[in-house]
């Protein structure tokens, strides 16, 4: 059980770091990526409620991802902050390519896609390849944030 609880704790801390990095970058004008809004609008079209729900989803999903990281560490027979950072970088690439462009549109009823025709509901601008629609620095920021997430999980996991 130690590995599960340590992964969950690390995942929570890592999500905290990831969220803070993205929000800070947004405040600095480097990106328009808004993870809570993107996630929350899966559930509701009320933008004010969406952010609160989005933060909740993020802090639930983050530790779940961390458990996945822990499983990978067990399979590798090794864990450290830098192993976690490498996995985090791969995670960022996966997020910027497959997750937000293939999986998210399947789950998200309010995100525009290449197949969107004349819309009869309001839609959110799609992230695009490597989320570059949200600003040229967006993937770089996502990479840093996920590396930080992975490093914290790699450091926190115990088995």
């Amino acid at each position: 059980m130690t590995v599960i609880w340590s992964a969950i704790a690390g995942g929570f801390l890592g999500t905290l770091a990831l969220t803070t990095i993205v929000r800070a970058a947004s405040e600095l004008g480097l990106t328009r990526m808004d993870l809570p809004l993107l996630l929350g609008t899966i559930i509701t079209d009320n933008r004010r409620k969406a952010r609160a729900i989005g933060y909740a989803i993020h802090f639930v999903v983050g530790p779940i991802f961390a458990v996945g990281y822990a499983a990978l560490f067990i399979a590798l027979g090794h864990h450290s902050w830098w192993t976690g950072a490498v996995v985090g970088a791969l995670h960022a690439v996966f997020t910027g390519t497959v997750l937000v462009n293939v999986i998210l549109p399947l789950l998200h009823p309010r995100i525009a896609t290449a197949d969107t025709a004349a819309n009869d509901v309001s839609l959110i601008e799609p992230p695009g390849f490597l989320m570059l629609n949200y600003g040229r620095s967006t993937f770089f920021i996502a990479l840093i944030a996920h590396v930080a997430f992975g490093a914290i999980v790699g450091w926190a996991v115990r088995f």
Binding site: R32, D34, L37
Partner: peptide
């Protein structure tokens, strides 16, 4: 939009 994705509105909305 500022620091968030654009919302593309529908005509009805």
């Amino acid at each position: 939009a500022h620091a968030e994705p654009l919302v593309i509105p529908s005509r009805a909305a």
